[in-house]
Design a protein around this nucleic acid. Structure first.
Lengths: 116, 116
DNA sequence: TTGACATATTCCTATATCGGTATATATTGC
DNA sequence: GCAATATATACCGATATAGGAATATGTCAA
């Protein structure tokens, strides 16, 4: 077998930095494709293809307005990513607190003359 | 060009569900490879290869103990994912609040003694 | 030393990608 | 209808995968 398709889920779709960039641009509001082409510096077909992937995982939706197509972000599709990664945040925060404790202890120990 | 290597960054590394599963198992504490093989049902070489990818992006570290190798998770490597996705959480929460407001308004419009 | 155990690496193959270029499909305005 | 604009799709080429099987490396124990 090969690697999982980019359209398999949000995790795969968002692994590509250009697609994250596009989503970040859409956070500012609806945009048409040409806007995104200009903002990203990518070719128009490339942007359309990235949008297709994002559409297939539900991360964006589009609405037609004459000959242009307006895209908007659907943050709900990214929730599984947030849900998965959130517990790890607790871990690195705990670790930070432990480091903090160590530093506090060092400060206290500094009281008499030990170097460093 | 082709798709970005899985070892390019944490986003690509965790796009593979098996690797997320392995990380989730390691949250419980250090584990040796055979443990992970049994817990995941994957083949031993597959697990070793996944661990290699996770190591290369810094998501796990290993320590040798005799003939076994103990792996532990390093949550810090996942921080960029959390940082990127967090702002989107606000968006879907806002949306939820809006929905909530709508529901509240509907309730109020309904008029009389209904409990929540 | 020899054999059993634990882990990593190599080779193979099918597959899905990504960018680039060219082209197809609408839609608008004259 | 025709040219111009906006977007999507098709085709190509190079590449990196993921699982499977076989093998290499390393360590312990009798």
């Amino acid at each position: 077998m090969s690697r999982m398709p980019t359209t398999a889920d949000a995790f795969n779709a968002v692994a590509e930095p250009r697609r994250r960039q596009i989503l970040d641009l859409l956070v500012g509001g609806e945009r048409q494709v040409n806007d995104l082409v200009e903002a990203t510096g990518l070719g128009q077909p490339q942007v359309s293809k990235h949008l297709r992937v994002l559409r297939e995982v539900g991360a964006v939706h589009s609405r037609e307005q004459g000959r242009r197509r307006l895209y908007r972000v659907d943050p709900e599709a990214l929730r599984p990513i947030f849900d998965w990664v959130s517990p790890y945040q607790r871990l690195w925060e705990e670790r930070f607190e432990q480091l903090d404790d160590v530093l506090t202890d060092l400060k206290e120990a500094e009281g008499d003359g030990n170097d460093r």
